[in-house]
Design a protein around this nucleic acid. Sequence first.
DNA 1: CTTACAGTTTACGTTAACGTCAACTTAAAG
DNA 2: CTTTAAGTTGACGTTAACGTAAACTGTAAG
Lengths: 128, 128
Amino acid sequence: MPQYSIRDLAEEFDVTTRTMRFYESEGLLHPSRKGQTRIYNDKDRIALKLVIRGKRLGFSLAESKELIQLYNPKGANETQLRRVLDKIQQQKNALDQQIEDIRVMQLELEEAERRCLETLGDNNNSNP
Amino acid sequence: MPQYSIRDLAEEFDVTTRTMRFYESEGLLHPSRKGQTRIYNDKDRIALKLVIRGKRLGFSLAESKELIQLYNPKGANETQLRRVLDKIQQQKNALDQQIEDIRVMQLELEEAERRCLETLGDNNNSNP
DNA sequence: CTTACAGTTTACGTTAACGTCAACTTAAAG
DNA sequence: CTTTAAGTTGACGTTAACGTAAACTGTAAG
């Protein structure tokens, strides 16, 4: 099983070591220790990747933490599993809303682009 | 031309009046005044809608402010217009990245969903 | 007139997400 | 052994995005 130092992951995902320790204190990462030095495994790596991607989408750390937990139906009973499935569905809906927002923004940006290009064309015609 | 009070827009977009005044102080909104009372027009309404949508996508107010400016190639010369076009392109690329992130998240959520359903199925088989 | 309500400015408070710094330990290199 | 580098734990500082409270003004209703 692959292991990583704090610096390994910090460099890979372009965050500071301070950030990694902060995430641990917030319960997002759970490195083991060799002496007092942190040792990260693949599960932490996946979690970190998820947090970083979440940030690009405007997720708070608390939201990303929930997301991480959705990926571990560890020792969960049926009731818990059903709650997890419900959360997953909510997340999927939220992402659908985001996609819709992005779609609208892209259309608006293309409108803006057209207006710019038009104005450029007009200027060139009136400035020979 | 339609006009809105601060409360009109605050209720429509579910923000507080404090937020609206804050956005004004940050240069995102530019209401006129009747006496000292703020009067908003359609341009402000559009800008506000854009900011709200931006927030759902994780944009900072500074980023949304830039976006707003992209929609007004007002008294811009050719050099400025080209810079605007460049920014528009950057924004479109950023949105493409977001869509990719969302796509990955959705796939992962569906994996998680499958794992949950599997576990549920197993439990039912071993608990008759 | 006064009561009530909506709006205004000013200013200090708050939370999330780290940055920064100090003081320390451990590990490896020269 | 000393230096150097990378790690550690506090603890305090910072920024964005508002919340909250105080003190004031205008205006419509009873």
